[in-house]
Structure formats: structure tokens, C-alpha cells
Design a protein around this nucleic acid. Structure first.
Lengths: 241, 241
DNA sequence: TGACTCAAAATTGTTGACAATGTGGGATGG
DNA sequence: CCATCCCACATTGTCAACAATTTTGAGTCA
């Protein structure tokens, strides 16, 4: 049964869908699913399933998967298909190294010139985080913790910065799923709130320092030591991309 | 004459080609051509021409173009094809804003922990720049000036940083082509050399400051004022992607 | 039971044909 | 001479069939 031969509209009741689904829509949805830990690392992404899910032809799905693989969210294995990426410990360290370089600089910039509207947005977001933490909604908290970093970049008003952070945060979400040590897998309690305080005060350097420490804190909640190589690191070691 | 139906090997004598040309090869080649100002902004990229040039089927070319458009190097217009991107002044300012945030942080990081081998590589590169400047090889100088920034990111040993900088520098190359004011279109004379000095001394903050000033210098050689909107800015103003 | 073989089924990769749209040029008329 | 219309051509977008590869599972044998 070809998925794309159907009436194309009037899909199964639950989810509303734009009339014209293009690649970017599929990409966005998979990004969200990864951020919310609904798509675990190494999950198979069958073309047929995706075609049915989005009511789209195979070409669209393949193009979306190509874009996602270029962004490190998906891995394409020849003749085997697409899988949600499973970053090796080496890759994970690289990603957090990059975040430790880039995100403090972004926090610094945002602290230097944030609009009141964006400040309010971030405050609102932190409130949501507190709410999720206190009501024990672990899944929501994980998602919100990641989204904070994206919204902070968004507050810079610069789409390039937003895009870079979004990619890194989403990949980090996969890393947390793979290497998170049971408890405290997400951002330590009130660091987001503290950072926001520095931003509100306009203390750029303090905000940058806070972000740097914060990222160290996140990494501390992960098991990223590469003393003994593990499964998905073999390809790194053997030098097979 | 179908381009992909030929013997597939033994192409025209000049250029050697990998036996198996995949999307990333096409992407790399177009990146290089843009960096070297051999592909000007708004240049049409016909699928057929690219198929012939690379000896590849249309699918490969289309996928490469999709990746390039996702990275802002190429613009896809529906039913009209692919063109080398023409960043609007608004986009150009956004890109340089992002560079002014990210690259100083990268320079800081590199200054803090560069290997002697990478330091030597950068010194060698600056020598090449001097050579090109003194022998009046303007085209080479433009290319080398951009490459310096990429190589600096490369010296961090972090592929994420390298990738981000490479994308931004390549887009900047398009911006220089569009908005560069005749003379001094590239990096002011010895700033790369000065920056390298700070890096060698291990003075992180000085290196970061130098990079920041350097980027301001580059922007000063461009005409990016958006007082009266121009051609390609219309789409920004009208809110059409 | 467990390991192995092999063929059927399922999935992915690629190609070519066709439809849809944009482009250019010549004829026509003012 | 210039503008407009219209048709042939060229290019892009989409799809469906086919080829290649992997996966599955039943069957066989030790």
C-alpha cells in the first residue's frame, strides 16, 4: 500500500497537519520528539512509517532525513536506513566542549542587550521549569531545561545563533539519554534562575561565567569518561567516520 | 544527452575525481568555489550543468543543493531552480553579529590551549597571506583571508566549531562579493598576524579582543547600512521567508 | 537445543519517464 | 519602434517501477 496514494487529507483524527507538509515540517517534528525524549537514540526511522505518519511521499521523507543527518540528529547507514543518532562519548565531549565555548559568549551578548519582552519570556520559562520540578513532571523538566538554552539564544534576536544552539541542545538531549546517570540527569536546580538574574542585572561577564559553570554542571551529571571504549566509540577508534 | 549515462570514468582530462562522488563531495566543491569567489552571488546552478560537471545523476545533485540551501550557501526557488545565495543586508548584519559573538570566544579557547603543530600551521598560513598580498594576488588573498578563520577554528580540534565557522565564513565571502567597497575588501593588513601573536603568547582575552576588533574592521570595509532597502531586502521587509 | 543455510519478504537506493512550471523568441498589432 | 500575446523549448518537481541489499524466519542437521 503506497502511503502517498491516499486522499492526502483527512488523516487520523488526532493531530492537525498543515495542508502542505514540506521537509522542514518533518525536520521540526523530529527535532521536537528528540528534545522530549520521545525518540530514543538508535531508534529506527523507517521511511514507510514516516510516510504514513506525515502523509507524504517517500522523497520528502528521504530529504528530511538527509537534512537531519547533516545536523547530527540522525545517522544514515547505507542500505540499512535511518536511525536516531547515538553520539559516541567522544562526540559527546566534543559537543559539550563546543557548547562551553559558544554558549557563554551568547549569554554574555544577551546580558548586554536584552529586550524587556525577551527578559519576560525567559522569566516565564523559568517559572514553568519550577512548576515542572515541584510537581515531579520529570519528562517536562527535561524538555524545558533544554529549551531554556534555545530560548536564551532566541533572545539574542539572531537566527544564526538560535540555529546553532538548537542543534547542539538537541544533540545534547540524545547524549543525556545515553549517558545520563540516573538522578539529576538535567540542569541543576536553580542555575537557570541564577543566570537570568545576572542577565537582568546586565552583568555580561557574570552571565557568561554562570553559563560556563552551568554547562560543567550538566556534564558532571553524565558519564562521559572514555577510559575504556564502548560500543559506539569503536568507529571513532577505527577511524571509520 | 543524459549526463549520468556516460562511461562514468575518464572525464575531461583536467580534474581528478573520486571514483565514488557523493553529495558531500559536491557540497565541498561548491563551498570552495564560493570561498574563492569563483561562484558569484545569484549565479544560477543548473541541475543539468552540475550533473555534467560531476558526472553524477540528478538525484545526487539535488540532494547536495538541498544541503547547501539548508546552510545558507544556496537559495532554492520553487520551479526556478538553485542559485548561489545573495544574502540581504539584513542577513549580512545578522551573520556578522553572530561572528562577532562566536569567533572571539573561539579565539579565546584556541589561545588557551593550542598545540605547537597547529600554531605552526597558522603561522605558515599567515606567511602565505603575506606572500599573496605582496605579489598582488588579490584573488588568493581573499581566499586565504577567509581560510584563516576556518583554520583557526580547526586549531581548536573541535569539528563542531570548525563546521560553524566554515559556514559563516563562506556566507561572509558572498557578502563581501555583494557589499564590498572596492578597495580593502578583505581583512586589514596584519591583523591576522597580530592575533596569532596573542595566541602564541597564550593571552586568551587579548586574542578574543583582537578577533572582535578584526571583525569590526572587516565589516567596516562593507556597505551594510540598511537605511534605504535594496533589491534583495524586499523579501525581508515583506516577510516572505 | 543450538547453529547453520537458504529462500522469501521487506526495506532502501536508483533510475527513467512524465507532469508542471518557468523561459525565451517570434509573430502580431498598435 | 515598442509592447503584447502565444507557442515551443528548457528546466524543475514528482512519482512509480525496478534493482540491490538487508532482514526475517522456517527448515535442516549435528
Amino acid at each position: 500500500m503506497g502511503a502517498s496514494a491516499e486522499p492526502a487529507r483527512s488523516r487520523r483524527a488526532g493531530r492537525s497537519m498543515p495542508d502542505r507538509v514540506d521537509e522542514s515540517h518533518i525536520v521540526e517534528r523530529i527535532y521536537s520528539a528528540v528534545m522530549e525524549h520521545r525518540l530514543p537514540p538508535a531508534q529506527k526511522l523507517s521511511e514507510l512509517k514516516l510516510c504514513e505518519a506525515f502523509g507524504v511521499g517517500r522523497m520528502r521523507v528521504r530529504r528530511a532525513l538527509l537534512l537531519l543527518s547533516d545536523q547530527g540528529i540522525v545517522e544514515l547507514e547505507s542500505n540499512r536506513g535511518a536511525f536516531v543518532a547515538s553520539p559516541s562519548r567522544t562526540e559527546a565531549n566534543e559537543i559539550f566542549d563546543a557548547r562551553s565555548v559558544l554558549e557563554p559568549a551568547i549569554a554574555k551578548q544577551v546580558a548586554a542587550e536584552i529586550s524587556s519582552a525577551n527578559l519576560a519570556m525567559l522569566k516565564q520559562h523559568v517559572l514553568l521549569e519550577d512548576e515542572a520540578r515541584e510537581s515531579g513532571k520529570g519528562a517536562d523538566l527535561i524538555r524545558l531545561s533544554g529549551e531554556f538554552h534555545v530560548k536564551l539564544a532566541l533572545a539574542s534576536g539572531n537566527s544564526v545563533l538560535r540555529r546553532v544552539v538548537r542543534e547542539l541542545v538537541t544533540r545534547s538531549s540524545l547524549i543525556v539519554g545515553l549517558y545520563g546517570t540516573s538522578n539529576r540527569t538535567v540542569c541543576p536546580d536553580h542555575e537557570h534562575s541564577d543566570m537570568l538574574g545576572e542577565i537582568e542585572r546586565g552583568d555580561s561577564d557574570a552571565a557568561a561565567a554562570q553559563m560556563f559553570e552551568h554547562l560543567i554542571g550538566i556534564r558532571a551529571g553524565l558519564d562521559l569518561s572514555t577510559t575504556r571504549p564502548e560500543e559506539s566509540d569503536l568507529k571513532d577508534i577505527l577511524g571509520l567516520s
